[in-house]
Write a protein that binds this DNA or RNA. Structure first.
Lengths: 229, 229
DNA sequence: CGCGAGCTTGACGTTGTTCAACTAGAGTGG
DNA sequence: CCACTCTAGTTGAACAACGTCAAGCTCGCG
């Protein structure tokens, strides 16, 4: 069961959103008095596709997966600490089009939607930064939709590995918290094919993979595979 | 060659954005003095993937297709009069991730980006509406990416026909301005398969199609095909 | 009347999924 | 400590979905 607590000092929180200070102290205090902090363990659901948004969800710490449910799940992106999770649902149609689940222990700050929208309306610099964020999410998904539809299995899996290394773990060596099945759901392929291609990459010595310990030996070859599709 | 003109009265323009009035007259006059109106004929490019955004593009009249270029093009959506075209590029990364081309004669109002962003920053209600629009674009693309990856040919083409009928032409009878190839690019399939499935739909008497004159005879069957995938 | 773009259909090859069998490791209870 | 079970991962083979190629058609336009 997720553990709950109240924030002590949002304005000095090391995990706070980098544009939060634009709100000014009185407004930050409003958030502090109204928001709750919840810890999620790996595998726990943070928000569920089909339900209505009630809070702005800010991921302070951890990593979560955002995916669309169906007969086959499709993971659209991973989100790591320091980002809002559900802005486009906050400002757009209020029903979640996706689910979000923690892939490692995560800390989420939940601010009631009304407070968040009021603050946004009254602080246009703050809103402006939120809008930038949403816009870049849209651009990201445009890229993703195009990649998924243009590239073959190898290219798609290469994309996923590059994404993990460059965007999430910022390193060519990392501990893979995603299962093979999640890698597959991220790359839009069957789990069996994800395994097969990982094996190929290993045989070609592009990556080294012992259990969950990943090393990308030749990132430039992965990039090439990604480009060729 | 696109024809160019200056606006006469943005504040009384029947094609103006429905939230433009939030700006107030003085600001609308600023737009009027700085924006230009360009007419695009069918097939002309309005903005080109890879270039940098210089203007907010507002589609006053007409229909355009927004697509991602590659070995195979992928049409993400059609946009019809009364909407902004490029908001997420205006507020996000400034390089177009997509191209936009007129599918019928269209009228576009171009406002310089700096003016547009200044107005947005100074009028938070206006910005708020822009943000809503961007958010719903994101939600739309989430749906699209999921549909494309979950559904088979028949389901995807059914989606496209439903979209045309419900979102663009608001009728079960319409003149299809898209070519078979464009239908295919919208549904992420080969042109040949788009043709084959249209023929099937016709044989099953779900649609009637003489040349470009489309009638959707049984929308509920299309909806069913769309759901089944 | 002839030409070309868009459309149509069938045959065939490729890509990727599904099914099935098997392995390895982690956790559990006796 | 060992058998038992459960999940994640692995591999091969059959099959389905889809794209590509090729040939021919139709209709509008010069």
């Amino acid at each position: 069961m997720p553990r709950l607590s109240k924030p002590e000092s949002c304005s000095r929180c090391p995990y706070r959103w980098k544009y939060m200070d634009l709100l000014g102290l009185p407004n930050i205090d409003k958030i502090q008095n109204n928001c709750i902090i919840i810890k999620f363990k790996k595998g726990e659901t943070i928000c569920k596709q089909g339900t209505e948004v009630t809070h702005a969800l800010y991921l302070a710490k951890g990593v979560v997966k955002l995916y669309i449910e169906g007969k086959k799940n499709l993971i659209l992106k991973l989100i790591k600490g320091g980002s809002y999770i559900d802005l486009q649902t906050l400002f757009g149609d209020k029903r979640y089009k996706y689910s979000v689940v923690a892939t490692e222990e995560s800390m989420v700050c939940m601010t009631p939607i009304d407070l968040m929208l009021d603050l946004a309306k009254e602080n246009s610099e703050f809103l402006f930064e939120l809008t930038k964020t949403i816009s870049n999410t849209t651009n990201f998904v445009y890229q993703k939709i195009s990649d998924l539809n243009r590239k073959h299995l190898r290219g798609r899996l290469a994309d996923t590995l590059i994404y993990l290394s460059e965007e999430i773990y910022m390193s060519n060596n990392f501990h893979l918290t995603l299962t093979r099945n999640e890698l597959a759901e991220f790359s839009s392929m069957s789990m069996e094919n994800a395994v097969r291609i990982l094996t190929e990459f290993r045989k070609d010595e592009i990556i080294s993979l012992n259990g969950r310990e990943m090393e990308i030996i030749h990132p430039e070859m992965l990039a090439r595979i990604s480009e060729l599709g």
